[in-house]
C-alpha cells in the first residue's frame, strides 16, 4: 500500500501570533514537493509538524499506512526529517550513519555492511573514521542523507538542504536527492529560492501569509519570488 500524508485544518500559533492555517494537503507516495516561502513564514515548523517532531495547535496530520510505534502517536518510522544544518553526534562518521540502524536492532554484520554501502552512496568512505564534528557543511549534509538513506525512509523532509553550500556541494546533494527519488522515496524540500534540488520536484507549494498554495509550475513559483 502506497504511503500517503494528509493534512486537515492544521493551525500553528506561537503565543497569539498565528503562523499558518492549512486547510488541506494530500501527498502521495513517489511525489516530490518543493515547499517555497520567505524566511520566517513557518516552512520549518510545518515540516516538523508533518514529520511528527512538533505539535500543531489544532488540526490533524495523518500518515497512512499507520505503522506508528507504541511510544509515540506522532512519529512515523517511515518518515524522516533532516535539519537545515544537520546535527552530528559526538562520535565518528560511521557511528553517526549507523545510529538509526542500531536502534532497529539489526545484526552487527548487516549493520556494518549497510553502513559501508551508505558511506559509498554518500561518497563519505574516505571520512569514515573521522570525528563527525570535523566535517564541512556539505559533508555534514551528505552524512545526514546517508543516515536517512540507510533506514530506507518512504517520506523524507529536507529543510533547506542547500543553504550555505557551494555550487559543487549543491550539485552533489542534488544528485543524491535525485537517486532517492528514483528509488521511490517521497521527498519534500523546503527552500526560499529555486535551485538544482528544488528543480527535481514535480509539485510546488507556496507558504505565504499563513496559507499554503499549490502552484502549477516552476515559472509560477518564480513569479512569487
Amino acid at each position: 500500500m502506497g504511503l500517503e500524508l494528509k493534512i486537515d485544518n492544521l493551525v500553528k500559533r506561537f503565543g497569539t501570533r498565528e503562523i499558518f492555517r492549512i486547510e488541506q494537503l494530500h501527498v502521495q507516495e513517489g511525489q516530490s514537493l518543493h515547499l517555497k516561502g520567505e524566511n520566517g513564514v513557518g516552512k520549518t515548523t510545518l515540516m516538523k509538524i508533518m514529520a511528527g517532531l512538533e505539535k500543531p495547535c489544532s488540526g490533524n496530520v495523518s500518515v497512512t499506512p499507520n505503522h506508528r510505534r507504541w511510544w509515540s502517536d506522532r512519529l512515523h518510522p517511515d518518515v524522516i526529517y533532516l535539519h537545515q544544518t544537520p546535527y552530528v553526534f559526538m562520535s565518528n562518521v560511521v557511528d553517526n550513519v549507523a545510529y538509526g540502524l542500531k536502534l532497529r536492532k539489526g545484526n552487527r554484520h548487516d549493520v556494518k555492511n549497510k553502513v559501508q554501502q551508505a558511506l559509498a552512496w554518500a561518497r563519505l568512505e574516505h571520512l569514515a573514521e573521522q570525528p563527525a564534528y570535523s566535517l564541512s557543511g556539505g559533508e555534514r549534509q551528505r552524512l545526514a542523507l546517508a543516515r536517512a538513506w540507510i533506514l530506507a525512509p518512504r517520506l523524507l523532509f529536507l529543510d533547506e538542504p542547500t543553504a550555505n553550500l557551494d555550487r559543487r556541494s549543491v550539485s552533489t546533494v542534488a544528485e543524491l536527492v535525485g537517486q532517492l527519488l528514483e528509488q521511490g522515496t517521497t521527498i519534500m524540500v523546503s527552500s526560499h529560492q529555486s535551485n538544482t534540488v528544488t528543480e527535481l520536484c514535480n509539485r510546488h507549494l507556496q507558504l505565504e501569509d499563513g496559507a499554503l498554495h499549490e502552484v502549477e509550475s516552476l515559472t509560477q513559483v518564480k513569479r512569487y519570488a
Binding site: A51, L53, T85, F89, Y99, L103, R147, L151
Partner: peptide, 23 residues
C-alpha cells in the same frame, strides 16, 4: 536538534534521552 535527530531516526524517548546524556 540532537533530540529531534535521535527521535526522527527512530529513538524512543528513553533512548533519545540516553543519546542526549551521551552527548
Amino acid at each position: 536538534r540532537a533530540w529531534e535527530t535521535a527521535r526522527t531516526l527512530g529513538a524512543h524517548c528513553g533512548r533519545a534521552a540516553l543519546t542526549i546524556a551521551c552527548e
